[in-house]
Design a protein around this nucleic acid. Structure first.
Length: 180
DNA sequence: CATGGGATTGACT
DNA sequence: GTCAATCCCATGC
């Protein structure tokens, strides 16, 4: 999975006529406490332990939807959280949903921008409504994960270089690439 | 059956 | 920088 997460950078997420290039991901694995699958297989986390290539949409703080891509073999319990996109198509539709401001520079924002909701949970990323298309590999930097309270020190955050559509704080290496 | 936590965001001081 | 909003579900009694 630690190979899949950076591999997703540069891939395209497509949903409802909107598309965006993945520029930030975070890896989650059931062996570390930050992952929902850590507690074991439950009705909600079952999809995390399911077959790879499946979307796992989760509501955080009762408000925001977070989009994950399940990876690893069935029964492993691992996923890659998609934290940020760079919009490439359907931008007007995103603006209608999001209003003014940044569209996809945060996990909760990108789902709202694309219109992805809890209804897309447990759908295929290959043949379902939400699709992930293979794209060009991107250069990236790693860093600690953001916004979690457990195991935040693991360097399982992957940010594409040269994109401003990434949630802050940016790792030092990414700041340098933006300045250039 | 009741309670608390959670991978976030946006507004206010 | 700090604080509140708000819903699902895992855990505990």
């Amino acid at each position: 999975m630690l190979e899949v997460a950076p591999d997703l950078l540069g891939c395209v997420v497509s949903f409802g006529g909107c598309e965006g290039v993945i520029v930030e991901t975070e890896a989650y694995h059931f062996t570390e406490p930050a992952c929902h699958a850590y507690v074991g297989v439950t009705p909600r986390t079952a999809v995390l332990h399911g077959p790879p290539g499946t979307a796992y949409v989760y509501r955080s703080y009762g408000i925001h939807a977070l989009l994950n891509a399940v990876c690893e073999a069935e029964g492993v319990g691992a996923a890659v959280l998609i934290r940020a996109l760079e919009p490439t198509a359907g931008i007007e539709a995103m603006r209608m949903r999001r209003g003014a401001g940044e569209l996809c520079n945060g996990p909760g924002k990108l789902t709202q921008a694309l219109g992805i909701g809890l209804g897309e949970n447990d759908t295929s990323l290959v043949s379902g409504p939400v699709r992930i298309l293979r794209g060009e590999p991107l250069e990236y930097v790693t860093g600690p994960r953001i916004g979690i309270t457990k195991a935040a020190e693991l360097p399982w955050r992957f940010c594409a270089l040269g994109s401003r559509d990434v949630s802050r704080p940016w790792p030092p290496g990414l700041r340098a690439s933006l300045a250039a």
